[in-house]
Amino acid sequence: MKSELIWSKALETSRKAIDCAAVIPLETYKYKSIKKCFDFELRFLKRTFPKNLIDYGPKANPFIPWDRRLEVQAVNDNYTIILNKYPVQLGHLLLISNYWKPQNSWLSIDDFEAIAKVDNDTTGLWFFNSSKDAGASQPHRHFQLLRRDKYENICPRYEWFCSLLNNSEGFNSDIKQCISIKPRKSKLDIDAHDLFNSYKSMIIEMDLGNINNDDKPLKPYNLLITEKWISLIVRSKDRAHGFGINALGFAGYFLGTRRSDIDMLIKFGPESILKDVI
């Protein structure tokens, strides 16, 4: 059983950060169930994002320095856990590099060792967006964690990915050709070298370049990491039919806006939208 000291500290830090407006939770409502969307969750913001909170023009790096009111704890000398400033889920965590590392360059064993150190205390759904075209909002290296308890559903499409991993008979999908998935070793604690080796294997499988020779991946991609598997999704763009899609879209979470084409989603299902960003 995980100690979850990081999670306890995240909740305490969240309460203080909300009180001083360092964290501004985004209130959403869940859209009614749609037959074609049984393994997706569609939410809408209850109110539009406040214009005074939107920065126009060139943006300063929010992670150098990071807002100390958002800091949960240091992971080691090179990584820190902080809170997402605008969370949909309270306690949405960011694992950031303390010094400049580009989001769109190759991941390293150091990244996975930091992930492992956090995950062995507090686990859930990890996700990574490699660049703007993969849904990243910041060019500074950061990973994101939505904490889940032992009996909670990791994400709406968890079983879909398990079926892909197991190559289940009759499994079919319009987007599976852009997805690589590898099992995690069957033990309680996450293993950094196991994840890094899986990452390198998926890079080769999905033809993203040579990690030793190329400066950066040849295509945008997302990563999803759970207790049972790690998956890489190759991308072409970050938006389709009024939906912004990052790694969470493939995990089954859609956040709609007034620009989102809900009629298309209802008629053809969410995979039709995902198909247009791969």
Score class of each variant (00 low, 15 high):
S260Y: 03
L53K: 04
R148H: 15
I204W: 05
K176P: 00
P102S: 14
S137N: 11
D194R: 08
C37W: 00
M202S: 10
Q138N: 11
K267G: 04
Y199N: 08
P270T: 07
Y29L: 04
V118M: 14
L125C: 14
P25D: 13
Q103A: 03
P156K: 14
D55T: 09
L188S: 11
Y151I: 12
A134W: 03
I81G: 10
P62V: 09
F243S: 01
N210P: 07
A251G: 11
A10F: 13
W126R: 13
G244M: 04
Y221M: 05
K16S: 08
R15S: 14
K51E: 11
G244F: 05
D39V: 01
F161L: 12
I24K: 06
P50R: 06
Y79N: 06
I175D: 02
L218F: 01
K117Q: 15
Q138H: 11
D207V: 07
R141N: 13
E159G: 05
K59Q: 10
R68V: 05
D133I: 01
T123K: 15
D214F: 06
N210Y: 08
I245K: 01
Y86D: 10
Y79K: 03
C37K: 00
N222G: 06
K275C: 08
I179K: 04
E205L: 13
D67A: 02
N78L: 03
N222A: 06
I64W: 03
P50C: 03
F196T: 10
I181L: 10
K16M: 07
D77P: 02
K237L: 06
R147I: 14
R15G: 11
A60R: 09
N213I: 03
L90A: 12
K35Q: 07
D19I: 00
I96A: 07
D238L: 00
Y158T: 10
I82N: 04
Y151P: 06
F63V: 01
I225A: 09
F250N: 02
A136C: 10
P270E: 06
F143G: 11
L265M: 07
F268L: 13
I54H: 02
K9C: 14
D121G: 13
I18L: 06
R258C: 04
D263W: 00
D189C: 01
V277E: 05
G135F: 02
N222I: 05
E4Y: 14
Y221S: 01
L93P: 08
D215N: 02
I225T: 11
S105Q: 06
T48L: 09
D19P: 00
G170F: 01
W100G: 04
E113N: 15
A240T: 00
E152N: 13
D121Q: 14
H241F: 03
D77F: 00
L125R: 13
N84K: 10
S180H: 13
I96K: 05
R147S: 15
T80N: 15
N197L: 13
Q138M: 12
L146W: 15
D19Y: 01
E41H: 01
F128N: 04
F171N: 05
P102R: 11
F268M: 10
R258G: 02
C162D: 11
P220Q: 02
W7V: 12
K176R: 07
W100L: 12
W7L: 15
A251Y: 09
H193M: 15
N129R: 07
R157G: 08
K85N: 11
L224A: 12
S108P: 05
F63T: 03
T257Q: 07
I154H: 10
R148K: 15
K32L: 01
L95N: 08
V118T: 14
